[in-house]
């Protein structure tokens, strides 16, 4: 359980370069426990890189990241233990194609958390029911639709009982008619009090579910605030220009 009074995610002065290309140019951000933060912005603005720095899939060039008060850039820290507490959902689902849905959900529980097979299967079934795919236990990922695969990926992350979830454009690779089911699952998750950081282009979802909206452009946070305010009354010209294109 997260400690009270400590931010879930705290990012300060974050810089990230790929060679000569500076993708993040000083990002500061705080996510409180239970908050849903939606990150929007044009492609190449650094929003996915920011998300991937939070569980160190990308190694920041400089700056500070604290997860539940712990400095995750400390070389002494066991990054695997930090990651086990942060669920991540990818644009391309990234289910393990050689494993059944059930094994996708149990493998990390067993190998990382050391849960018994029985406990792991029970947790997996509970989470599959939560995303409405109880009947797909024995299926292989290749036999599921994109929307189903993404819901399995969410259930896989939830099976680790994470304290927070990161979503990297979870609906961008889906056919339009499959987006709704995935957003429904995410909405339920937000209502249950999960701390969430969501990189998305779904403005309707952000408006309805988000507690905070962040607009990024060119490696910096241009504007942040309540989604309603940012969407209907953007203060910066760059935000206005972006929103006029996507809305």
């Amino acid at each position: 359980m997260p400690l009270t009074g400590v931010a879930a995610i705290e990012v300060a002065g974050l810089h990230k370069s790929f060679g000569d290309l500076e993708v993040l140019r000083g990002v500061d951000l705080t996510v409180e426990p239970g908050q849903v933060v939606c990150v929007i912005g044009p492609s190449g603005s650094g929003k996915s890189t920011l998300l991937r720095c939070v569980n160190r899939l990308e190694e920041p060039t400089s700056g500070e990241i604290r997860v539940e008060g712990i400095d995750i850039l400390d070389p002494e820290i066991d990054v695997d233990r930090v990651r086990a507490r942060i669920g991540m959902v990818f644009q391309q689902f990234n289910l393990f194609p050689h494993l059944t849905v059930l094994s996708n959900l149990t493998i990390a529980q067993r190998r990382v958390l050391g849960r018994s097979k029985r406990d792991a299967v029970e947790v997996a079934r509970h989470n599959l029911a939560r995303v409405g795919l109880m009947d797909k236990v024995a299926a292989y990922p290749a036999h599921l639709s994109g929307g189903q695969q993404q819901r399995v990926a969410i259930a896989r992350a939830l099976s680790m009982d994470p304290d927070m979830m990161l979503f990297d454009e979870p609906t961008s690779a889906l056919d339009p008619e499959l987006v709704g089911d995935v957003l429904d699952v995410m909405r339920d998750l937000a209502r249950s009090g999960m701390t969430m950081m969501v990189v998305t282009h779904e403005m309707g979802f952000a408006r309805e579910v988000g507690d905070q909206m962040i607009f990024m452009d060119d490696g910096v946070i241009v504007e942040s605030g309540r989604p309603r305010d940012v969407l209907s009354d953007p203060r910066h010209a760059r935000t206005r220009a972006f929103l006029s294109k996507v809305l």
Partner: peptide
């Protein structure tokens, strides 16, 4: 084996060795 497979495994807290053994090598085998 797509890079996303390693990223998914690592984001679940699996170590580099465990990821290689349980996720990458079985797929590479095919």
């Amino acid at each position: 084996v797509p890079k996303g497979q390693t990223e998914a495994a690592r984001s679940l807290g699996m170590s580099a060795g465990r990821t290689m053994l349980s996720i990458v090598l079985p797929q590479a085998f095919r």
